[in-house]
Design a binder for these strands. Structure first.
Lengths: 345, 345
DNA sequence: GAATCACTCCAAAGCGCTTTGAATAGCGAA
DNA sequence: TTCGCTATTCAAAGCGCTTTGGAGTGATTC
């Protein structure tokens, strides 16, 4: 049942039926009722493809999940971010178009989605420091929003980010306050912008405490349980092992916990672990007595916020570019405690 | 630059340009070259919306992520499943349309996507036992494929599944062979079809060994680290605690590991843990010496397979309904060992 | 020289919707 | 009576592509 057929049954023109269904004022209320009832009865659904062509909008927003052929690790926060964003899209009548592409094809995919008019807007995730996607997209006249930021880019763009530097400074500072002096830092890959900022926060906290950073205590790895375990094991086997760890995510923190337990240490007593907590739903670190001391910022809420900011931008493409910077919240858990007696300090 | 403009610059009809670009034979090779070069030069991209309307296909496939307002846990396997499926879609020129909706709106969303022609096919995930989505979708004449199965449904439908019953039977059997007699089972929510089957496998293994199942050792919870920890803690604090655990996923297994360590037990020596391993990328249980003994079946590969099966079905909608049943592979890890001396057996 | 055929190309009719511009009817005001 | 205005409806022109059904041109055949 399409618009034409429906209008024929009603002895009305397609114009009137279309207007009746879309709530235009220039249609008699009695007629409108007749139309909506018939549409209901015949289960009429406007064809989305035709609608998109006629309106010039696709009512969908593009997300890209890149993966490299070498390591097929999907970013741990994608699922929750997408869940948050998708929720807002649904409420606003948008769909999400998700493309999974090799990382070297990522920009071409953004470009194709924009140039073919497949999407009305794009979300860019996990920017690297001088991210070429951003400068390129800015020339494409498609609304887009960056989750995170890219340092050293002159082009203005809309973004939403967490204050990563401050978060890691707070987290490291907390361990320093507990008396720890050798603090292992297991960061994400430092080509990522957020990892750079977190590193800066870690270093700033050490500097304030007058502690010289030790390269042996700073690892930069892709965030997985395995990598967390591996890095922590290496550090724990040093001649002067750390008494505490800071991790860039709860996932490597799980690996650290494993390495600590395997050596017979008790978390929060012998060794402290603190991490950045994206509040991933199935790895929740909540309740009255959280497992990990952490700086928390919900990536799901970030997804929601990014979606809303992008939709706003699509609706007012010439408005000012918005920015939003969130502060993460320090959560005290069981995984940290004072530096044990006899520690290096 | 649209087709009309391009054809005017070339002094050709839109027809010829369209055919030249789409590889139809009835166009002179010299002309075709002239066209493709011009298309390249002017960066012509056919408008996707117009293309969809004209062809009657949307070249996109619908996935739905449901969530309930109460517990916002995103299914732990969604990210990897989607990553696998998306990869295959990209290779075949399809996009993925992802909708995140409240679980009570899930079927309406499937229906809307199908009836408005927004998608050419649908993937149904996580079926429950007598899943209404399947019977309803079958009446909608849209190709769809179920990841998993739904017992007690007469309507034929295409599916791809892992042999969950067999997998849990093997896993439980392995623990029984090691001498364990009290084996805690931490399953997913038993309204899910896969959980029913896994339960059946667990019970069958016990039955073969002549062991009466103990309800106190069988928990059914949403799969999260927290829930794994909570359930394991309860069981470990029983008067007759289990000497081993079977978990429905590596995520609750992490929680079990935490509960075991917290009590000063050593995994694989004092207490054994085995689990179903979906081979989630950032929780990989691989390498030479896997952490957990597990039955493994890559959910990412399952995503790839489902995508391919659905695409095949879209291309040949009247072909036979395909089914695919995979066997999970037993992986021996460090988390299991013989039942310690003095154990109940 | 007419008929046939392969090879190229094109005009025009969709696809199913929205939207512009105009037509019609009804009604009170001049 | 006529004009102007409002309320309601419609015809037709898009949106930008594909695809059907020719049409024109040489070359080949008889």
């Amino acid at each position: 049942m399409n618009l034409k057929e429906l209008s024929e049954r009603l002895d009305l023109s397609p114009t009137t039926v279309s207007r009746a269904l879309n709530g235009y004022p220039e249609v008699n209320e009695a007629t409108r009722r007749r139309v909506t009832e018939a549409a209901e009865r015949y289960n009429y659904r406007p064809n989305a493809r035709a609608l998109h062509l006629a309106t010039g909008r696709s009512m969908s927003i593009g997300h890209i999940i890149p993966f490299s052929k070498q390591n097929e690790i999907v970013n741990i926060v994608f699922a929750d971010f997408i869940a948050g964003a998708g929720e807002v899209y649904s409420l606003n009548g948008y769909n999400m178009t998700l493309s999974v592409v090799r990382d070297d094809e990522e920009f071409d995919t953004y470009r194709r989605l924009a140039e073919t008019g497949s999407v009305d807007g794009l979300i860019v995730q996990s920017p690297v420091c001088d991210d070429p996607r951003i400068t390129h997209l800015a020339q494409l006249s498609v609304p887009f929003l960056v989750h995170g930021r890219a340092s050293d880019i002159d082009t203005p763009y809309a973004w939403m980010d967490v204050n990563n530097t401050r978060a890691l400074e707070v987290l490291t500072g907390h361990l320093l306050d507990l008396g720890h002096r050798r603090i292992g830092f297991i960061n994400g890959q430092e080509k990522m912008d957020f990892a750079q900022r977190r590193r800066a926060g870690y270093l700033r906290a050490l500097e304030k405490a007058g502690i010289e950073p030790d390269p042996a205590l700073m690892h930069s790895v892709e965030m997985s349980e395995q990598n967390g375990h591996t890095s922590a094991s290496i550090m724990l086997d040093l001649d002067e092992p750390p008494t505490a760890f800071v991790a860039s995510s709860i996932v490597p923190a799980l690996g650290i916990r494993r390495a600590v337990s395997a050596r017979g240490h008790v978390l929060g007593r012998d060794i402290s672990v603190a991490c950045f907590d994206d509040d991933i739903s199935y790895l929740s670190n909540g309740g009255d007595r959280p497992e990990f001391t952490a700086v928390r910022s919900s990536v799901r809420d970030a997804g929601r916020r990014c979606a809303q900011m992008l939709i706003d931008r699509i609706r007012a493409p010439d408005g000012p570019l918005c920015h939003d910077l969130w502060e993460a919240e320090l959560i005290l858990g069981q995984s940290t405690g004072p530096c044990p007696e006899g520690c290096v300090s």
